[in-house]
Design a protein around this nucleic acid. Structure first.
Lengths: 235, 235
DNA sequence: CGGTGCGTTGACATTTCTCAACTGTTGTGG
DNA sequence: CCACAACAGTTGAGAAATGTCAACGCACCG
């Protein structure tokens, strides 16, 4: 009784792609689609975990809320990614809050109970989950490295350079997947500071900054800034 | 032909504890002990992965080196922890550099080839590795949250409060597991700044700071600082 | 008894945060 | 269709935190 769109989404997940079709169908049977609008919460930090999720469309933000109420961004993820697998597999509570950022956000929710039954005793599925967790690990290691960069200019430069770009070298166009407010949170800085950095680089001629798109004109310079070579910004 | 100490260490790992003894012995057969001194490198970022490791004694630092040659600390780990499992299970290269920090550091190296053979087809072992990866995920999420704290005082306060403490409330004694130089790197700041923070808090009467030990006198205040309430430091 | 490296302190330059006001856009209700 | 509210984004000014460079004390080790 699996919804076709659910099955389709699952079949396209990198780590589920290689699973046998009947297994996929059984996973899909315990799953269903969820539609959200920007700002809506998928689950909150501390809630008991009842399943994990795959992103079908849109952007989801994982964050933790500190005692002051300010959210600290753990990660952003887009279509084709899964989240909360670890919480499910260890049968714990969700360690973070998941929020939809884009206005049509579509998720697949894989129910915990039925999935765990399949998981136990199925080596292929276990291997798939191991791959999935490994990707998460690699991403978080990246993120830690990113946040270890001292200056926010370095973090921003690195972020821009890692976005998928199009266009000729010397005029690489990148699309910001997040509103600047959320981007600032992701970079562990303030919207004001982000705005100023973009403006400075724009005036200096390293980039062109439009509302949601940035054109990278001088990637060499940006690379230098990303490497913490602050003098590059002054030169 | 497993070395007893190897087997003993493996048996004490949280996620291997529940494995059947004969399986443990077979894992131990593909493992051996490694002794290192502080500063010695276990493996370097980018090297092909030939196994994963368990810490028997001492502290190991995982770090990535940026183009300037400055190391950025990903994580520090002590006895009872494993690392590089993900690199092995995905059969990739090591994503970071591992360095021994303490002068007697003892590791167990589990050879990749023989371990992977056991891994495939053994559900218990797969489950154990999933647990292990999940712990890593949780730790890195913590680390990301930690690094998202804007001020280094917040990071330091939080770090101190999370160390295992002994003694009566109002006089909690904690032991720094790292030299201050490495602690500064862990907190993504400089030794100078760390030194000044400790001194200021010492003078203010929040803590007592000795060479390798810190006594927390005013945990309420430290909690406020950790929560980013900077006014607490000025008050 | 030198040397090497950690830790500290001082002085100074930058970066960044905070608070506050202002602009532009979007979307809603009259 | 327009007016207005709500909010993202920008800009300005001043304060605070942090990084940098440099010098010094202090321990440990050969």
């Amino acid at each position: 009784m699996a919804d076709f769109e659910v099955l389709d989404t699952l079949a396209k997940l990198p780590h589920f792609r290689s699973l046998r079709p009947d297994l996929l169908e059984r996973i899909a049977a315990g799953s269903h689609r969820i539609r959200l609008r920007g700002g809506e919460v998928v689950f909150r930090e501390g809630e008991p975990c009842e399943g994990f999720f795959a992103v079908r469309r849109g952007v989801v933000q994982l964050s933790r809320t500190d005692p002051d109420g300010k959210p600290r961004v753990i990660h952003h993820l887009g279509a084709g990614r899964t989240f909360a697998e670890a919480a499910l597999l260890t049968m714990k509570v969700y360690p973070a809050t998941a929020t939809a950022l884009t206005t049509p956000t579509e998720l697949i929710r894989i129910r915990g109970e039925s999935f765990l039954q399949l998981f136990r005793g199925n080596t292929d599925l276990a291997a798939a989950m191991v791959s999935s967790l490994s990707v998460w690990l690699a991403q978080l290691v990246e993120r830690v490295e990113e946040l270890s960069l001292v200056t926010s200019s370095a973090r921003l430069a690195r972020y821009l350079l890692r976005l998928p770009a199009s266009g000729p070298a010397g005029r690489l166009a990148v699309q910001l997947p997040l509103p600047k407010k959320d981007l600032a949170a992701h970079l562990a800085t303030t919207p004001e500071n982000l705005s100023r950095l973009l403006r400075r680089w724009h005036d200096a001629g390293w980039i062109e900054s439009q509302r949601r798109a940035v054109v990278l004109l001088d990637t060499t310079r940006l690379l230098a800034i990303a490497d913490g070579d602050e003098r590059a910004a002054a030169d």
